[in-house]
Simulated assay, not measured.
Amino acid sequence: MYFLFDNLYFPPVTEADEEGILAVGGDLSPERLKLAYSRGIFPWFNEGESILWWAPDPRMVLFLDELNVSKSMRNILNRNVFTVTFNTRFREVILNCQQILRDGQDGTWISDEIVESYCELHNQGIAKSVEVWQDEVLVGGLYGIDLGHIFCGESMFSKVSNASKVGFISLVNHLRKENYKLLDCQIYNPHLDSLGCREIDREEFMTILNSK
């Protein structure tokens, strides 16, 4: 495991351990974050602990044509229960992702420093958000890093049933129209699996990442 200091550097992703941890330490400056995502690396750690940088193998992704929309979700989308916008409330979205209560989690990995760093990346046009509205109230959304051919999803929240799914599906439809290659979902979870995401070898992911 590599220990980072002030220099902007990451070791090759092949040096990650079996869990997928590549490096420890460093900072969350926009410059380091941009370098990390461009190399297939992302931060994920508990608040108050050292920064952990991940490059897992396998990698959870969604190939956009493999999106799975259930019959009940198609009905919700067709009834226009929600309104979806893009990049209109980035700070509100990331703050909701930070504050939302999640089953099995006592805290959040989205520290105040992460909020400020990603908001700066949003100001630079790199971090982007999806907002889901119901009766003009923000009830769901997600944010991530836009690499131009891959969108790296970071976190999502939902205050009413299905709001985050609507945001996810809307994002995928947008990325498909813009000819993105895939949506990076980082690490397996059953919710993403139900939407059509699957695990691929890190080597395959890196080949796609580097084929701009």
Rank of each mutant, 00 (worst) to 15 (best):
D184C: 09
V139I: 13
N189E: 11
S170T: 04
N173T: 00
C152L: 12
L182G: 11
F168K: 03
E178R: 12
G144P: 15
D146Q: 13
N189P: 03
F151L: 14
L183N: 08
L175H: 04
L195A: 07
F168I: 04
R176I: 05
D146L: 12
P190I: 00
Y180E: 13
V139N: 13
R202Q: 11
C152H: 08
I150R: 15
N179M: 09
Y143V: 12
L142T: 05
F151D: 10
L195K: 15
F151N: 03
K177E: 07
S158Q: 03
C152S: 12
Y180C: 02
S170W: 00
C152K: 15
V160S: 02
S129D: 04
G125C: 04
C197I: 09
V137M: 14
K177T: 07
L142R: 12
Y143E: 13
G144A: 14
Y143N: 06
G153R: 11
C197Q: 09
L175G: 00
I200H: 08
I169Y: 05
N162G: 07
Q134V: 00
F151K: 15
A127S: 14
G148E: 12
I169H: 04
H191S: 11
K165F: 00
G144T: 08
I200K: 10
I126Y: 05
L195E: 06
Y188E: 04
L147M: 13
Y143R: 11
F168S: 08
N173I: 03
L175K: 11
G140A: 05
L138D: 07
G153F: 00
K159E: 00
G141N: 15
I145R: 09
V132L: 02
V132D: 10
W133V: 09
R176E: 10
